[in-house]
């Protein structure tokens, strides 16, 4: 897929676009830091650059990939979310990462929910998994908020990760799961109802 044809997804607070060269500094800051410890990091400058190029190239090889999440008002990059399937990944994955300083606003939930909706609705995915580090409690929590359930029978990437299986498109269509997600996103979007007491992606 040519880079300029990567679809744009808009949500209430966010715009998801293909990753650009100009978005690299935030990616580098996160992946060279402890924040990336559950995603193979921290990485060296060489590894970080190559991974970012691979994030972009994944779109061209697979026809889908990780979107860059932007604040709809300020355009500030907030993190990434989307589909991910390098060679030897057992199944297509839905993945997300939020830049550290923007965590705790429900952006990952809103972005990943929208990305999953696109992959299911427009690209015809019948389902998806997320491969998570068992120590990455914030991401496990987000997977569960997205309605995913731990699948102990599924093949994992390398045995050090756990597989969460996302609800199918049918299970997300006007069900309690999807209503609950929409409700939580709406509460983040309305400061009067912002959840208190825990910082989550």
């Amino acid at each position: 897929m040519p880079h300029n044809s990567i679809p744009v997804i808009e949500t209430k607070r966010l715009v998801l676009r293909g990753p650009e060269a100009g978005d690299y500094p935030d990616f580098r800051a996160t992946f060279s830091s402890y924040r990336s410890r559950f995603m193979g990091g921290p990485l060296t400058p060489y590894e970080t650059w190559m991974l970012y190029a691979a994030e972009i190239g994944h779109w061209q090889i697979r026809g889908y990939g990780m979107w860059m999440i932007h604040d709809r008002t300020t355009d500030k990059p907030l993190g990434m979310a989307g589909g991910w399937k390098p060679a030897q990944w057992p199944e297509a994955e839905i993945a997300w990462i939020i830049w550290p300083e923007t965590a705790g606003h429900g952006y990952a939930l809103e972005a990943t929910h929208a990305a999953r909706g696109y992959l299911y609705g427009r690209l015809g995915w019948e389902g998806a998994v997320s491969y998570l580090d068992p120590k990455n409690l914030d991401s496990i929590r987000l997977a569960e908020r997205l309605g995913a359930k731990k699948d102990t029978g599924a093949q994992t990437v390398d045995g050090n990760d756990i597989c969460y299986r996302h609800p199918s498109p049918a299970q997300l269509k006007n069900t309690q799961i999807s209503d609950g997600i929409e409700l939580e996103i709406a509460h983040y979007a309305d400061p009067k109802f912002r959840p208190e007491g825990y910082a989550l992606d």
């Binding site: 190559m50 970012y52 190029a53 994030e55 972009i56 190239g57 061209q60 390098p86 060679a87």
Partner: peptide, 20 residues
């Protein structure tokens, strides 16, 4: 190299075009 590395490298090639 492994198949995994080969995929990443071809993705690097494609992404490099967009970056540079």
């Amino acid at each position: 190299k492994s198949r995994r590395i080969a995929f990443d490298r071809l993705a690097n090639f494609a992404g490099h075009w967009v970056m540079r």
